[in-house]
């Protein structure tokens, strides 16, 4: 009950955040422009150019989900990094945690509030995307929903990492740490351009420290959404399981770090 009260209040606060609103408008613009691609794909199909239509449709839906994913991650990163420091800076944390509320309940409430916003956003995206598909006459693709579940999960992991580092240090460091974690998957690929041996070593280290981290890699996700048939159900299951693992680990670490953290703004 208390966790829900904090979550609902956090959600309302995020809905009133002007920076997030501006970001949403930007996304809306991109969303509308990719809708054009889907519509033309449907018209091409009607004209008998089935192969071109399939390609254009795949590109358009890929671009839509790509934008949606990037936006979700940005949203999750900023919310995860700034929600708690924002409460500390504004002083709203003091009367809230001056209540019969444990720190864990409070932090979980904040995280749940972020999730509520992400869920609202992705629900809107799902409804809008489904509407676009129906409108353009191609029918709703079921893998879209799966793709969105994947996005929710990755966005949650992103928010949890940002959350942990914002509890430990500050939002700026949280964003840098997040960039580091997210670039780990692509690190080996970049090094491979220079040295195959070093790339394998880095890959081994990354795999040892963060097992199956690559399953949450953003580029892999794109492949999934563009060619869903190429991925097995097992791939999704393992990816989801690892995603949940990482989410739980980062969140638990954040809860632990928050137990003894000062609630006063840094002087």
């Amino acid at each position: 009950m208390k966790v829900w009260a904090v979550a609902w209040n956090t959600y309302r606060g995020l809905l009133h955040n002007r920076a997030l609103l501006a970001l949403s408008l930007f996304f809306l613009f991109i969303f509308v422009s990719s809708a054009g691609g889907i519509y033309f794909a449907a018209r091409l199909s009607e004209a008998g150019a089935a192969e071109q239509a399939r390609r254009l449709f795949a590109q358009s839906i890929g671009s839509l989900l790509n934008t949606n994913a990037v936006f979700s991650f940005i949203l999750a990163a900023f919310m995860g990094a700034f929600v708690l420091p924002g409460e500390i800076k504004s002083g709203t944390i003091l009367p809230t945690l001056g209540r019969a509320l444990s720190r864990s309940q409070y932090l979980l409430g904040l995280f749940l509030g972020i999730n509520l916003l992400l869920a609202t956003y992705l629900l809107l995206v799902a409804v809008a995307a489904a509407g676009l598909m129906l409108w353009s006459g191609v029918g709703v693709e079921p893998y879209l929903l799966l793709g969105l579940v994947y996005v929710v999960l990755i966005a949650n992991v992103v928010a949890a990492i940002a959350f942990l580092f914002s509890v430990l240090v500050n939002p700026q460091v949280a964003l840098v740490a997040l960039a580091f974690f997210l670039s780990l998957g692509g690190l080996a690929a970049s090094i491979r351009l220079v040295s195959q041996v070093w790339a394998e070593r880095v890959e081994a280290v990354v795999d040892y420290v963060l097992p199956a981290w690559g399953l949450l890699n953003y580029s892999d996700y794109l492949q999934v959404t563009r060619t869903p048939a190429a991925r097995s159900a097992e791939f999704f299951a393992v990816g989801l399981a690892h995603g949940l693992d990482y989410l739980a680990v980062f969140l638990l670490l954040a809860l632990f770090a928050f137990r003894r953290r000062s609630l006063l703004p840094p002087s």
Partner: peptide, 30 residues
């Protein structure tokens, strides 16, 4: 803390809430 009412010196408020909503929120937390 359930038995304490605390007023900090520099009290921060949620600007998007009304006075009623704020008191309901804090009441529920208590």
């Amino acid at each position: 803390r359930l038995r304490i009412g605390f007023l900090p010196e520099n009290l921060g408020f949620y600007r998007y809430l009304t006075a009623e909503q704020l008191l309901w929120y804090y009441g529920r937390l208590n």
